[in-house]
């Protein structure tokens, strides 16, 4: 050890400051070089846009029935994807059905993220009693398989899109809460939180500046992966007659009503299922891509 009391010179003296991106900037940068994620991101974007602009894009009225034009094959008289068991244009119904399916997939996840995330952060940062009260309550919901719970809740409240969304929100909230709680508890014990406390910062300030930023990432990633589950579960509920009511166009409901015609025109009957598959796989792979782009070794 030298006895020099001068400040040691930093070696990187004249090096130019490298271009700085913020955290989210660097996430976007990494996403751009991931072709799979970019592709499925485009698919998801296309699905969302198709649902939003269904009234413009749909070639026919999705509710216009035709006795003579039932279960016609693809391309019949301008019906690109054929017609369903009541002679309605399937492409139009798939476009409109996307609205309901996406809504039922996204809205419950958003509600669950807000409620579950808030409860989880409180549970993770609060004392042992608060944590026990919140997490044990959530465990009660965990005791049931998610499909069964969704069916039971929406069954008890009666069908309909709104009740279906409430049911799905209740299914997703405990999982969201657990993720937020784990992330919070992990961050809470790191030295920088203790350092912030040593600076004299209050609990709310610490939560705002130091905890939330570190918890939002995992919560957001998990939420994006839940969207595909939400679409599947929503379709399942509709399929069982607990979601939207006929004649509303919805992928799950269409699958249910077309099911009986599977021997007459199997290709047509499978289409709603294909739509569900494409949507949920695309959301899933997009979420995976975002996860790996956000998962920087910090």
């Amino acid at each position: 050890m030298s006895n020099a009391m001068t400040l040691p010179q930093h070696p990187a003296k004249e090096q130019a400051a490298p271009k700085q991106r913020g955290y989210w900037g660097s996430v976007l940068y990494r996403l751009r070089y991931d072709p799979v994620t970019v592709f499925f991101g485009c698919v998801v974007l296309a699905i969302i846009l198709a649902a939003i602009f269904a009234p413009v894009l749909a070639p026919f009225d999705p509710y216009k029935e035709s006795i003579i034009g039932r279960l016609k094959p693809m391309g019949w008289k301008g019906h690109l994807l054929g017609t369903d068991e009541l002679g309605r244009d399937l492409l139009s119904r798939l476009l409109y059905g996307g609205q309901v399916s996406l809504l039922m997939g996204v809205v419950p996840v958003a509600i669950a993220t807000v409620i579950g995330g808030t409860l989880g952060v409180i549970g993770g940062f609060g004392g042992r009693r608060v944590n026990t009260a919140i997490m044990r309550t959530m465990d009660v919901f965990y005791a049931f398989p998610s499909v069964l719970l969704a069916v039971a809740i929406s069954g008890a409240m009666g069908g309909g899109a709104a009740n279906g969304m409430i049911a799905l929100s209740m299914v997703f909230t405990p999982a969201m809460c657990r993720v937020a709680e784990t992330a919070t508890a992990q961050v809470k014990n790191l030295d920088f939180v203790e350092a912030a406390r040593a600076t004299g910062a209050g609990t709310l300030t610490i939560l705002r500046y130091h905890i939330l930023g570190n918890v939002l990432g995992p919560v957001f990633i998990y939420a994006s992966s839940l969207v595909s589950v939400g679409i599947l579960l929503a379709s399942g509920l509709s399929f069982l007659g607990l979601g939207v009511k006929p004649p509303t166009a919805d992928w799950g409901l269409m699958l249910s009503t077309l099911r009986q015609s599977i021997y007459i025109n199997p290709a047509i009957c499978a289409l709603p299922g294909v739509a569900i598959l494409i949507a949920s796989v695309s959301f899933n792979l997009l979420s995976d891509g975002i996860r790996s782009a956000m998962d920087v070794r910090l």
Partner: peptide
């Protein structure tokens, strides 16, 4: 000042 220089800084800041 803490021992673990890495965990005593907020990784997202």
């Amino acid at each position: 000042v803490f021992q673990d220089s890495a965990s005593s800084l907020n990784p997202r800041m």
